[in-house]
Lab assay of single mutants.
Amino acid sequence: EDEVKKIVKRLIENGVDDEQIKEIVKRQGVDERIVDKVLKELK
């Protein structure tokens, strides 16, 4: 989960929008619920 957080944070800093972040992270095989949780925490 910490790995996911790092990735998502980097994507947000690069101006990637939420939908794209979800797609990218899902392609890495991460559960969507984890992605949603991380996005909420970082906003």
Rank of each mutant, 00 (worst) to 15 (best):
E1I: 15
E1P: 07
D2N: 09
D2T: 08
D2Y: 09
D2L: 10
E3K: 08
E3L: 11
E3D: 11
E3P: 05
E3S: 09
V4M: 05
K5T: 07
K5Y: 13
K5H: 07
K6R: 14
K6A: 14
K6W: 10
K6C: 05
I7V: 08
I7P: 00
I7T: 08
I7L: 15
I7D: 02
V8H: 00
V8W: 01
V8F: 02
V8K: 00
V8N: 00
K9P: 00
K9D: 03
R10L: 15
R10M: 15
L11G: 01
L11T: 00
L11W: 03
I12E: 02
I12T: 04
E13I: 09
E13Y: 10
E13D: 12
N14Q: 15
N14D: 14
N14P: 00
G15N: 06
G15H: 06
G15I: 02
V16F: 15
D17L: 10
D17S: 15
D18S: 10
D18P: 14
D18W: 15
D18Q: 10
D18Y: 13
E19M: 11
E19W: 12
E19T: 10
I21W: 01
I21R: 00
E23S: 10
E23G: 05
I24T: 05
V25G: 03
V25L: 15
V25M: 15
K26V: 14
K26Y: 07
R27Q: 12
R27D: 06
R27V: 05
R27M: 12
R27E: 07
Q28I: 15
Q28P: 02
Q28K: 11
Q28R: 12
Q28E: 07
G29W: 03
G29Y: 03
G29M: 03
V30L: 13
V30M: 11
V30G: 06
D31V: 05
D31Y: 04
D31N: 08
E32D: 08
E32W: 11
E32M: 13
E32V: 12
R33K: 13
R33V: 10
R33M: 11
R33L: 11
I34D: 03
I34Q: 05
I34S: 03
I34Y: 06
V35I: 15
V35A: 06
V35H: 01
V35C: 02
D36I: 14
D36Q: 09
D36T: 11
K37I: 07
K37Q: 09
K37E: 06
K37M: 09
K37A: 09
K37L: 08
K37V: 05
V38K: 01
V38T: 03
V38P: 00
V38C: 04
L39P: 00
L39W: 03
L39Q: 02
K40N: 12
K40F: 11
K40I: 09
K40P: 03
E41G: 05
E41K: 05
E41C: 06
E41D: 11
L42W: 04
L42N: 02
L42S: 04
K43S: 08
K43R: 15
